[in-house]
Design a protein around this nucleic acid. Structure first.
Lengths: 157, 157
DNA sequence: CGCTTGCCTGGAGTGCGCTCCAAGGTTCTA
DNA sequence: TAGAACCTTGGAGCGCACTCCAGGCAAGCG
């Protein structure tokens, strides 16, 4: 087992399943007829159908449309939202906070200020994380160099 | 509750507790007399004593020294190791993989190649994550701008 | 000498983000 | 029209990384 760092962070929208049976639909349906089944959305986002249903249950999705028999029919709008949620997820934002943002978004234009503040917090955090990671990168570079020209240096790890 | 993104990623070594009762000891003990109690190490790393003991139990620490009565006495070496582990943790590497690395380190010089490969994998992953985060940053910038000059644009979220 | 504080152990508990199950209805393909 | 493949629900289960608990030993202080 090698260090598969991203194993716990499943692929999301940007991935668009380029692997087996690649059929990535960036402008997925031609026109206004945008009604996707849950498995289509799952394939497109890389999330499982379970997770999509769970997102809806916890309030992270803005009330998904249903067919006349009760099956979910996602729209391009929903896809856009999921793409954005995927970005937030990459930042490490807890789901509870994403739900909070989703609530604000559903509440309408009156919550612009609060939403902006939330995103600005998030942006600060993302910048901090990038800085941390670059720091970490420097440490890794140093250590890999050390292994490269294995001197009897004061390292032992 | 605002979006405290790093809430699930507790502070680690670089932090060095600059808050209340600040007493950050970068070169903590003057000389060879480096024997820290678990609570000193906890304060210095930002990890809990529980977590330090747990790290040792699972093999993430290389056998910590004990006092004559069985209490742990950490050395500067241990502090260096914990700092490095903190870096790995920031990358999102699963604990199991860090343990694997620790085992290799304990096994001696014969595992240099494998350790280097592991760190190179990790480095690739860190680079990818930085790229993702920069992508996310661009999305956040765009959205914050949108809130800034709130036009009736095609956004709704 | 008693009291407080800190440390020890094994094992149980917690919170998060999914992930899966069972039992049943629906839709598509041959 | 049969059968496979897909969808529905509430609720239970899981893996990770801690986090805490009970019960007990040890050290320092007035």
């Amino acid at each position: 087992m090698t260090a598969d760092i991203t194993a716990t962070v499943p692929p999301f929208a940007p991935t668009r399943r380029t692997d087996l049976c690649a059929e990535p639909p960036p402008p997925p349906r031609p026109d206004g007829q945008d009604r996707y089944t849950i498995s289509e959305v799952a394939a497109w986002t890389g999330l499982s159908a379970h997770t999509l249903r769970w997102y809806e249950r916890i309030g992270l999705m803005p009330h998904v449309d249903r067919s006349h028999t009760g099956q979910r029919r996602f729209t391009n709008r929903d896809l856009d939202w999921l793409t954005f949620v995927g970005k937030l997820r990459l930042t490490g934002m807890p789901v509870a906070d994403m739900v909070r943002y989703a609530e604000l978004a559903r509440a309408g234009a009156g919550t612009f200020e609060e939403r902006r503040a939330l995103l600005e917090d998030t942006r600060r955090n993302v910048r901090d994380r990038i800085a941390e990671l670059q720091d970490t990168l420097a440490v890794l570079d140093r250590k890999i160099d050390y292994y490269g020209c294995a001197l009897g240096a004061p390292e032992r790890d």
